[in-house]
Amino acid sequence: MSALKTRVRAQLLRIHIWLGWLVGVPLILWTLSGLIMVIKPIDEVRGSDLRSEPVAIPATLAAVPPRFDGRAVETLELAMRGARPVWLVRYAGDDSRAADAATGALLPPVTASEARAIADGAQKAPGEVATVERFAADANPLDLRRDRPAWRVTYANGLHAYVDADTGELLALRTPFWRTYDFFWGLHIMDLQTREDTHHPLLTGFAAVSLVTVVLGFVMLFIRQRRRKSRSRLREGLGEGVSK
């Protein structure tokens, strides 16, 4: 019986070692990425602390309904674009336009200079602008995560401000640390391509194997502690026998 227990313990130890080699790197990356993601408050990561207070819609505004172009409208929202009140018209199929709230006329797409002014106005202390680039909805940078045509206003400090090219909405502020956070988030969920898929076989498989490895390690620790206690009792018994 003792020989059988020894073989079982040896087999469990062998399995634990091989599983440890298999999941060691993912466990290190999960721990490291988790650490990176909690270093800063999430508001700082998202750049929420950089945003200026939104301009209130004038109480005296006599809004004129927008002049629709015949398409089915899903939602209609009144907002401010800088100092200008506008309607945000959402059509079916994720298409959007802006309309002047004072006249109801649909507004043309946002220009580069308008995008820069919107991005500057959305921040408490805008920095020096390095570049202003426009991207199509199907060719947006990874850090935007929106299927919308957008202007990217890049600042000298590494901040990216994304402005919707059709409506003039500020879609996102992406700080340099946000991009670091995003990379480690991709490592954490094992999806560096889209960084959005939190349910796929690779992640589920490694998570399951990691759980088995940790549980097996606790079992081995428990078995080792019992062996040490048994040996200690045996030595104490032998010592008492010799003294008698």
Rank of each mutant, 00 (worst) to 15 (best):
Q123A: 12
E133D: 13
R146L: 06
A105P: 00
V25I: 15
F177S: 05
A117F: 08
M80N: 08
L144S: 02
E196H: 09
S48N: 12
L76Q: 12
Y155T: 05
D100K: 07
A156C: 06
I118V: 10
T198F: 13
A115D: 04
L159I: 13
T131H: 14
E77R: 03
L203K: 13
E236Y: 02
G93Y: 02
S33A: 01
Y162H: 03
I36F: 08
E128H: 03
Q225M: 15
P141I: 01
P41Q: 10
V23G: 01
Q11E: 06
V214Y: 09
I189E: 13
A98L: 05
A10Q: 13
L192V: 14
G217K: 04
G70P: 05
E169F: 01
R179D: 01
R224K: 11
A101S: 06
W151D: 01
F135C: 03
F183G: 08
A136R: 08
E44S: 14
D120A: 00
S243A: 15
A207C: 03
R67Q: 15
K229E: 07
P58M: 07
L159T: 01
E236K: 00
V25G: 09
A56V: 01
L88P: 10
P201G: 08
P26G: 07
R81H: 05
M220G: 11
A63M: 06
R84Y: 14
A63Q: 04
P66H: 10
Y181A: 05
H199N: 09
D49V: 11
T204Y: 08
H200A: 04
P126E: 04
E77N: 10
R179W: 02
Y181K: 03
E53N: 10
G241T: 12
G47R: 11
S230F: 13
W87C: 04
A165W: 06
G121F: 05
T213K: 03
L144R: 02
L12F: 15
A98S: 15
Q123D: 09
P85M: 00
A136L: 12
A172W: 05
L78I: 12
E196V: 12
P26W: 05
L202R: 14
T194Q: 15
I15F: 14
T111D: 04
P41H: 11
S48M: 14
P108Y: 02
L12I: 00
E77K: 04
M190G: 03
R233N: 11
T154E: 15
A161E: 05
P65T: 00
T204W: 11
A172R: 10
T75E: 15
A208F: 15
P109F: 00
D43W: 01
T6F: 10
F135K: 00
R97A: 07
D143E: 14
R116I: 07
T60G: 13
V209S: 01
L13G: 14
R116N: 08
T111R: 00
R9Y: 02
G158E: 10
E240G: 05
L50P: 15
R145F: 04
L27E: 00
A117S: 10
A92Y: 04
M37T: 07
T204Q: 09
A72P: 06
T103N: 00
L170Q: 02
V45H: 14
M220H: 11
